[in-house]
Simulated scan of single mutants.
Amino acid sequence: MPVYKDEKVQSNQWYYAFEVKDSDGKRRTEKKRGFRTKKEAEKAEISVKDAMNKGTYIQPTKMTFGDYLVSWLESRIDLRKSTRVGYEMIIRRHIMPESISSISLSDINAMTVEGFMAKVHATDYSDSFKRNIYKVIHKALKDAERKLLILRNPASLVTKPKVAKKEMSYWTEDEAKTFLKAIHGHRLRVIFVLAIHCGMRMGEIRGLRLSDIDTKRGIISVRHIMDSERNLQIGTKTNAGNRSISLSPFVIKEIEKRIDGIAEEKNATSNDYEDLGYLICTKKGRPYLKKNFRDIWIRLLAKTGLRTIRFHDLRHTCASLLLGLGVHPKVVQERLGHSSVQITLDTYSHLAPNMQQDAANALQNLLE
């Protein structure tokens, strides 16, 4: 066995070294140091040769995990800008300063990831943020496995952080009616009509263009979203988020009011108006920042005196009202743009007891 002892070092003196042929026929030396005993070195050498014979061996790389993360993020040109910014922040602030970033990518194992995540768990970060840190590591190592840089994704062997399910807030039918009635005449009332009647997300409403709306056919095509900095991004949160939403006459009327309002504002500001084609915009045609959008919501909510909920909870209100009316969950899923009907059922499982009782009563009435 080509196993050797390096007398120049004080500990872990044993190493193996043997010649192999690359796929192009060139010879190179396969070497690894740092074994405590001759037996350990021999065992490691046998394992490497066995993997080579089976075609499962991956040559160790000197690239550190930190360097890999940087290059990995640069290669992910498919990420939305907001997602990229979030990943970059996690890598720069929460992974690079830790010892895991200086470990060779080849040496990252389940214990390494588990040890790092134990430190993350000990922080006061939210459960969802801890999950996001794990998610970045898992995705990066999954790509490394796909590119044959590592044999297996070690993060897949580590339990991902659990996120406590928050109690959902949503308005009742009376609360939704009261709010829409209270803001009657507001130039941006259509925002809240779209959220409550169509279940659209904030980014989808902010990114809605006039060309996405067909009032004659009564359809909105949701094809993109706007991020917090007013950048329009092609595609929505999920593939299912790219969808067509049917509109009621009431919603069509509200949209037409806003379109008429845009025409009036354009005439009033003349040369100062930027015609960017958005349904929701300032009096000079510019889209709103996410922060400004939320400020409008908070001010209007405070005026009505209604129970405080988040803007996103208007989407939950839409789903809850539809399911309460007996609309099929598949239709609700398609309207909201969930990736599967199971997500819709899981998200709104709190309505199941009432729906079960309604079903029981309906069947009784039918058969009596």
Rank of each mutant, 00 (worst) to 15 (best):
V120H: 03
K142V: 03
I95S: 02
P161D: 04
R131V: 03
I137C: 06
E88M: 04
H94F: 04
S169Q: 15
S128E: 12
K165I: 14
R146I: 09
P97C: 12
K165N: 07
S82A: 15
K165Y: 07
R93Y: 10
E114H: 11
R84A: 04
G115R: 11
S156C: 04
L148H: 07
K119D: 12
R146S: 08
T123M: 06
I90A: 01
P161R: 01
R84H: 05
W171P: 00
L151P: 02
V85I: 08
A144K: 00
S104W: 10
L141P: 01
G115M: 13
S102V: 10
T172H: 05
L157F: 14
G115T: 14
E167H: 15
V85Y: 03
A122M: 09
L148C: 06
D127N: 10
H121Y: 10
M111G: 13
G115P: 06
I95K: 02
A164W: 10
Y134V: 02
F116H: 01
A118T: 09
L149F: 08
S102T: 11
K162T: 14
K160C: 04
N132T: 08
T123I: 08
D143F: 04
H121K: 13
A118Y: 15
K166Q: 10
K135A: 07
P161E: 04
F129N: 03
M111A: 08
L105T: 01
I91E: 00
L148E: 10
M111E: 12
M117K: 04
G86C: 09
R92F: 00
L151G: 09
N132Y: 09
S104Q: 12
A164D: 13
D107K: 13
